[in-house]
Nucleic acid binder design. Structure first.
Lengths: 124, 124
DNA sequence: CAGTATCCAGTCGGATACTG
DNA sequence: CAGTATCCGACTGGATACTG
């Protein structure tokens, strides 16, 4: 997912923006949020996660989990059993993200009606 | 605040996820964040905005502003002068987004070193 | 069950050119 | 100055098939 796009590599005083941009590349995507949200209740296996996150494809779930694991937000634990079993759980860093998502969710819940109304006005 | 689960009959946190998804589709994009960040200091004209938001193309700035206007986060004011002048400014709804971005930015600043470190570990 | 590889259609976004 | 339209390459992500 997060890829190096063809954009200006450096901008003079974009210090909070740059950090924020990095975070949003990680967190600002649909599947990431849903995965973290589900994992915040405890560890889950791959297929359980796929069932929980409605609409995610096998491929995207894999990629999302890889990304989160790479960034140290999720820990992957594989059991050498047959059939194989792999648990995913949030790390401390991953858990620290939870309150942020709650704040976002709260804002979303509070304002989504206003936004939908604004859209209707604009679209007509 | 997000008491959640008090009235969740079947799926624990499926509902906030949907609302959150909507919001992230709007806010979780690079240009949107940068535009809102810049406008939070006061109204700006189109070209000023383009200069401020490093790397944004003319086209994407237009599209971003349209989207924000549509959602009622930004107000567009055109002056019938020659040459034309158009001011963009945050609405109250747009301003309410600012603290959220600050929280995100703070988390980003706090944890980006940890994330970068995790990436190095993972990539080697 | 978990994960990888390949294919390919749809979308995104930059560059460019043109209008009022 | 502000905005729109078009072209087109790059990237995304779903579907599918295969491995351990």
């Amino acid at each position: 997912m997060s890829s190096a796009k063809t954009n200006a590599p450096s901008s003079p005083d974009a210090k909070p923006c740059k950090a924020l941009g990095n975070i949003l590349d990680r967190v600002g995507d649909k599947w990431t949020v849903m995965v973290v949200g589900n994992l915040s209740n405890g560890p889950m296996r791959f297929n359980a996660l796929q069932r929980a996150v409605a609409g995610v494809s096998h491929r995207m779930l894999t990629l999302t989990l890889r990304g989160l694991e790479r960034d140290g937000l999720v820990r992957r634990t594989a059991f050498a059993t047959v059939p194989p079993r792999v648990d995913y759980e949030l790390t401390a860093l991953g858990h620290s993200l939870k309150p942020l998502l709650e704040v976002l969710a709260e804002w979303a819940k509070t304002n989504q009606v206003a936004i939908e109304h604004a859209r209707e006005l604009f679209d007509q």
